[in-house]
C-alpha cells in the first residue's frame, strides 16, 4: 500500500523520491525549459497548478473510477486543467506563454502528474492528495529552477533576465550581472549543458545522502560488519 503521513510525503516529495533527480519524470521539459529562470518559473507554476488540481479531483472521484477506466479518466482530468492554465497564461503572461510554446500543452503527458495520480491520489484522502500534489510539484520545481539558475549564470553570466514577463514592468531591471558584460558560454545554453549540470545536481544529492547516512548510520554499519564477518567465516568452518 502507499499510504503515508504528511511528514513522509514532505520528505519523499522534496528529497527521497524527487521527481526530477531520482525518478527522472518530466525530463523533457526539465531539459528544454531550464535555459532561463523566467521560463522555469512559468513552467513550474503551470505544472504545480495542474498537479495540485488533478490530484484533488482524482481523489474526489476515486471511488467511482476503477480498472480499465482509470487511465483515460486521469488523462481527461489532467488535460482539462492543462487547458485551463494555458488559457490563464494567455491572459496574464502572453509573452511567456509564447516562449514556453509546446511545453505547456505537453504538461498533459508529463509522467510526473500521471504518476502521482496513479500512485497516490486515487488511494488517499482529498487533503492528503492536495498536499502530495503541492509537495511533489515543489520538488520538481525546485530542481527545474535550480538548474535554470545555474544554466543562466554559466551561459550568459546573468541571472533573472526578462523577469518582467512574469512579474510585470516592476521587474524590468531585476537582472543581475554576475560575470563581466558580454560573457557567454554556448554549451550551457543548449541541452547537452543541461544534461551535464543535471548530472552534477544528482551527484550532489548522492553526496549529501552519503554524508547523512555515514553520520546517522555509524552504529548500524559497525553492527553489520560484525554480522558479515560471522557469516563469511561460517561456511568455511
Amino acid at each position: 500500500m502507499y499510504i503515508r503521513s504528511y511528514k513522509s510525503i514532505l520528505n519523499n516529495g522534496i528529497w527521497e523520491e524527487n521527481q526530477g533527480l531520482i525518478l527522472f519524470l518530466g525530463l523533457c521539459p526539465l531539459i528544454a525549459v531550464s535555459n532561463s529562470v523566467v521560463k522555469a518559473l512559468g513552467l513550474s507554476i503551470a505544472t504545480m497548478f495542474v498537479l495540485l488540481f488533478s490530484n484533488i479531483t482524482i481523489s474526489l472521484i476515486k471511488k467511482r473510477v476503477s480498472g480499465i477506466l482509470k487511465i483515460p479518466i486521469f488523462i481527461i482530468i489532467i488535460a482539462t486543467f492543462t487547458t485551463i492554465i494555458e488559457l490563464f497564461m494567455k491572459v496574464f503572461m502572453y509573452e511567456l506563454y509564447i516562449l514556453l510554446g509546446i511545453f505547456i500543452p505537453l504538461i498533459i503527458v508529463n509522467g510526473l502528474i500521471l504518476n502521482r495520480a496513479e500512485i497516490f491520489a486515487c488511494k488517499n484522502s482529498v487533503v492528503k492528495s492536495a498536499f502530495d500534489g503541492l509537495i511533489f510539484g515543489m520538488g520538481f520545481s525546485a530542481v527545474l529552477i535550480t538548474l535554470s539558475a545555474v544554466r543562466e549564470i554559466l551561459s550568459v553570466g546573468k541571472i533573472f533576465i526578462n523577469m518582467d514577463l512574469l512579474f510585470g514592468s516592476a521587474a524590468v531591471d531585476w537582472s543581475i550581472t554576475i560575470f563581466s558584460e558580454g560573457y557567454s558560454f554556448l554549451l550551457f545554453m543548449l541541452p547537452p549543458g543541461a544534461f551535464i549540470l543535471l548530472g552534477f545536481l544528482i551527484a550532489l544529492k548522492n553526496l549529501i545522502d552519503g554524508k547523512v547516512n555515514t553520520l546517522s548510520g555509524n552504529e548500524r554499519s559497525s553492527l553489520k560488519k560484525e554480522t558479515k564477518r560471522v557469516r563469511t567465516t561460517g561456511p568455511v568452518a
Binding site: I61, V65, L69, I73, I77, T80, T83, I84, K90, V91
Partner: peptide
C-alpha cells in the same frame, strides 16, 4: 457512461473558462 460523463464535465469546464477568458486573450 462514466467516461461520457467525465468527458462532458471536462468539456463544459473548459468551455466555461474559455468563454470567460476569450475577451482577455
Amino acid at each position: 457512461a462514466v467516461l461520457g460523463i467525465v468527458a462532458l464535465i471536462s468539456g463544459i469546464t473548459v468551455f466555461t473558462v474559455h468563454a470567460i477568458t476569450k475577451g482577455y486573450i
